[in-house]
Design a protein around this nucleic acid. Structure first.
Ligand SMILES: [Mn+2]
Ligand SMILES: [Mn+2]
Ligand SMILES: [Zn+2]
Ligand SMILES: [Zn+2]
Lengths: 138, 138
DNA sequence: CGATTAATGCACTTCCATTGCATTGATGTC
DNA sequence: GACATCAATGCAATGGAAGTGCATTAATCG
């Protein structure tokens, strides 16, 4: 049994062929991907299956969505420690305005945010737009 | 001539009836609004006109879009100092998970963010999700 | 006023999310 | 292994919102 299969089972998700493929694709790519990008990776893939695969992954703490402000959500593997109960992705997300790639900067945690009295925080989302390393050399 | 008309002219935008209405609606409401929400405010309004009105406002530094992670962009009036050249909205945005309203917290500027070497920042987007004052009493 | 340019309204297209339903595949029981 | 059961998949269809082309109307200027 592959490492991925073991991981999925540990997350209580049945390791079907498509799920393994999707997981591997995300693991191999450092950047987050949209559903359409994922779809393009496979010759014969049904959009709906992909959609539901991602939903399942999201529900079980395997991937988290990233809303980088460009309309279409992207998805990346979660950090360790995520589970069905609560995602644990309080890191910074960087979106490159040139190559359009969005990446998790897991080492860069989100700073403490002060809110006006009466407001309570449940989740924080920090997106930085700019130029990534690869594109900065231009 | 109304204050709104004067303001729009100063921004180099011709103050048509619809533009004045849209501006007033946004000014009267503390929360940001989607196009559909705006559309619902008017009996007879064409979605395209609204769409282009907002695009124009965006272009001339009158409104800024807020991507609160719920798929559909919302719009709010800019702070003073925005113009065609560059928006100037480096404040925090708060989205209430209960009433679903999104507001600008213009007093809460976005903190300095450190990035890995090689990355350059052009824009930062900080969204806090939680419960707003109104909803916190429940 | 007549000419010119901007704004509007309507029709249409496209993209993506989402759902219903029939079909296929896996799992566990006898 | 055959069968019952439940999960996953594939296909078709729906729906919401963004975006565009073009004809019409409104504003502006000489
Ligand atoms: Mn991430
Ligand atoms: Mn704002
Ligand atoms: Zn880049
Ligand atoms: Zn609220």
């Amino acid at each position: 049994m592959s490492e991925i299969e073991i991981f999925l089972i540990a997350k209580k998700v049945r390791p079907t062929a498509m799920r393994i493929l999707v997981f591997r694709s995300l693991a191999n790519k450092r950047a987050a991907m949209t559903l359409s990008e994922l779809e393009a990776l496979f010759e014969k893939s049904d959009r709906t299956t992909l959609y539901r695969t991602i939903k399942t992954f999201e529900e079980y703490g395997i991937v988290h969505p990233i809303h980088d402000g460009n309309g279409i959500p992207k998805y990346a593997l979660c950090e360790e420690g995520c589970d069905c109960a609560a995602h644990n992705d309080l890191h910074l997300h960087f979106h490159c305005n040139q190559c359009e790639e969005t990446v998790c900067l897991t080492d860069h945690k989100i700073p403490q945010i002060n809110l006006p009295r009466g407001y309570t925080t449940e989740d924080v989302n920090l997106i930085v737009n700019g130029k990534c390393v690869k594109c900065s050399s231009d």
